[in-house]
Amino acid sequence: MPVNNAILRSAGSLPKIEIIVGFAHFAKFEFFIYDQAGQNPVKFAEGVNSDDVPDIFEIGTGGTVAALDKRTIFWQAAIASPTGAPGENYSVIIRVMQDGQIVGTDSKTGPMTNPLPYGFIRLAVE
């Protein structure tokens, strides 16, 4: 699976990550962050998109931007269609933002017959 990069500014604030699930589908999701060696995944956010909590989360809370360099984010979501109409597709967009600017994205689309998308975003600090 190709991995997208998010380029962070070391002088900027801690980045945030947002999940956008299209087609008004339900989603249950999780975010993990791996260390620079690709080990020790730590969950830093989870939730569902049907509540009133914004689906945007700070990455590396309590740390510094520099500490995020060469680390990898893993995201996954379980999607469900409220209508269950046949032939539906899902769409998930992941956005990494720093100081209001989008610095990295990942996206997945697919049929609702396999509604468990996931992806990786590698962080780099310049």
């Binding site: 991995v3 339900f26 249950k28 999701f29 999780e30 993990f32 791996y34 060696a37 690709g38 080990q39 995944p41 969950k43 569902v48 049907s50 990898t72 893993f74 996954q76 979501a77 379980a78 469900a80 468990l116 990786f120």
Partner: peptide
């Protein structure tokens, strides 16, 4: 949906 949908554990490690 919230109660019954599952998410698998993340990969223990990743390599490029």
């Amino acid at each position: 949906f919230t109660k019954n949908l599952q998410l698998p554990p993340p990969p223990a490690s990743i390599s490029f």
